[in-house]
Design a protein around this nucleic acid. Structure first.
Lengths: 299, 299
DNA sequence: ATGAATCCCTGACTATGGTCAGGTATTCTG
DNA sequence: CAGAATACCTGACCATAGTCAGGGATTCAT
């Protein structure tokens, strides 16, 4: 078969390899080796010491030193010993290094913008790229606990509200819903989890507590390109563990039949349907789950 | 902005680079350098002489020779001089080479199958990959004239029929439509064009003639992931040139209002709407275009 | 305070990919 | 048929990426 999945993915690989190669070549056009360019970029991206640089680029210690010496002698990078630990060395770009870094960024930005500008459906292209990137990097998805007011969290919450507005026939207005105050989803009262795939936030879920034995799960959302990977379940079990740690014994949540995937998830992961427990206008399904107190850290 | 298009595409690049790198590493696990592995694979894929190999892998003549000598001394590749031109050398795999080639194929197939098997929506993933690959390779789309019974052409035609069946409220049955005989779309009576992006056929269009001054455009189709790139227009102008070469003076075509993109294309590219000229049950719009006789090759 | 661990460096070495200048055999062109 | 062009090869050379052993400075642990 000529148009089977394997042939299609190989075609994808060839296209993408050619693209990456072309970008590398344009980097080479700036007269520096790829290794040196990668180091310069890493430092520009905020890698601040030699150990972090080695880990980030997966380089041998000797090679790292040599590349750094090269960039130093070009006047692009400065090193100084870490005042906190004189064995360590801190890295920074000189003014000239910043300029070179900006030039590299420009090269890659130009390619990206050109690709998008020339495409008839840039949004569809971006969505497709997100889908592929998430699929390829699915083993490297991280669950990060953060303040729900942090940028990545806000990004997820806004996507969540936008999706509700799309799905609910009557629309959705956050102010009408019982918006949990941020501090109720921060320790010691609760917690907030964001699923991050290589820097891009692709899902969130919050545990809203008041210090008592009952807490609520709120704001469960997974980006469209990441659905089906079991992320909701993972975030949920993470929140259950957090709840156990915080001494919570009963979890509750409300949801809406316009979100059938969510209702199905709760039904088959140990939740029992209960009576309405609030007067929020949007939800029409209510669930409860009793959790085992685990060996959580004492408050 | 953190979630802007540039950041998303860079994330895509990182994910894909990591994937390509991992595949290269697994190739390296077979104890051969990447260059040698690439040569072995190219020969396995049917590259049959040294010049084609150089062009395909974009290698220097000296390097090519050295890699070939290496593979020869390992007993994986055989070379013999081309009987038709004794300066040329023909390449082939030995039995052992075939086995090694199959092992490399297996490595890459395994990764692909694993990716698809683990993904919740393999069809969506493949469609996304096709979209990205087509966007990246859009400058390398080829217009190939071929027999409408060739595999790539048949693939396009079947996709076309399937799409009509989906779009027409009454469905679509090829046998009811005036299916042009293949030979009417082959020179000297007509021609058939397939748009190919790195091996994948992504569009087709046929010129159906009878040797006279009037011919018809038939079977214009563009794959969903390639729409908006101007392919239909390109194929059309190619067919017009072919028609001029074949001495055709008037082109006609029929189409259906369920295909508004097509109707719009014809309206704004020099076609005039005319009366129904056949009794095919499906079309409801009919167009005509007078073409200039060019300096086409005399039949 | 002393030995172990760490961080980073240097110097020696290797494999690989890549370039370049010929060189030989063959084919094409007029 | 002579000279130009083509196809492939060899040998010399280079830059880069990468490995490895060891060494100096510093910090940690007991």
């Amino acid at each position: 078969m000529k148009h089977d999945p394997v042939a299609r993915i190989r075609r994808f690989n060839r296209a993408v390899t050619a693209e990456v190669g072309a970008l590398d070549d344009s980097f080479l056009g700036r007269g520096r080796s790829l290794g040196a360019a990668r180091v310069l970029n890493a430092i520009g991206h905020g890698i601040a010491d030699v150990a972090a640089l080695r880990a980030y680029l997966n380089l041998d210690s000797g090679l790292t030193s040599r590349l750094l010496r090269g960039l130093e002698s070009e006047g692009l990078v400065e090193t100084r010993t870490d005042p906190a630990d004189a064995r360590r060395r801190l890295l920074s770009l000189t003014a000239q290094g910043e300029a070179e870094y900006a030039a590299y960024e420009q090269l890659s930005d130009d390619r990206v913008r050109d690709l998008l500008r020339r495409h008839p459906k840039p949004d569809a292209l971006l969505a497709a790229m997100d889908l592929v990137a998430t699929a390829l990097a699915r083993d490297r998805i991280e669950m990060v606990e953060m303040d729900p007011r942090a940028a990545d969290a806000v990004h997820c919450l806004q996507s969540y509200y936008a999706e509700l507005a799309r799905r609910f026939s009557q629309g959705f207005d956050v102010s009408l819903s019982r918006d949990p105050e941020a501090t109720a989803m921060i320790r010691p009262r609760g917690s907030f989890i964001v699923a991050v795939s290589d820097g891009l936030p692709i899902g969130c879920a919050g545990l809203k507590g008041d210090g008592g034995k009952v807490a609520e799960i709120k704001r469960m959302w997974v980006a469209p390109e990441a659905r089906g990977l079991g992320l909701a379940r993972q975030m949920m079990s993470r929140l259950e563990a957090d709840a156990a740690e915080l001494g919570v014994e009963v979890l509750r949540l409300d949801t809406n039949s316009a979100l059938p995937e969510a209702v199905a998830l709760y039904r088959n992961s140990g939740w029992t349907e209960i009576e309405r427990f609030n007067d929020d206008p949007y939800p029409d399904h209510f669930f409860e789950k009793r959790i085992d107190a685990r060996d959580g850290a004492p408050a």
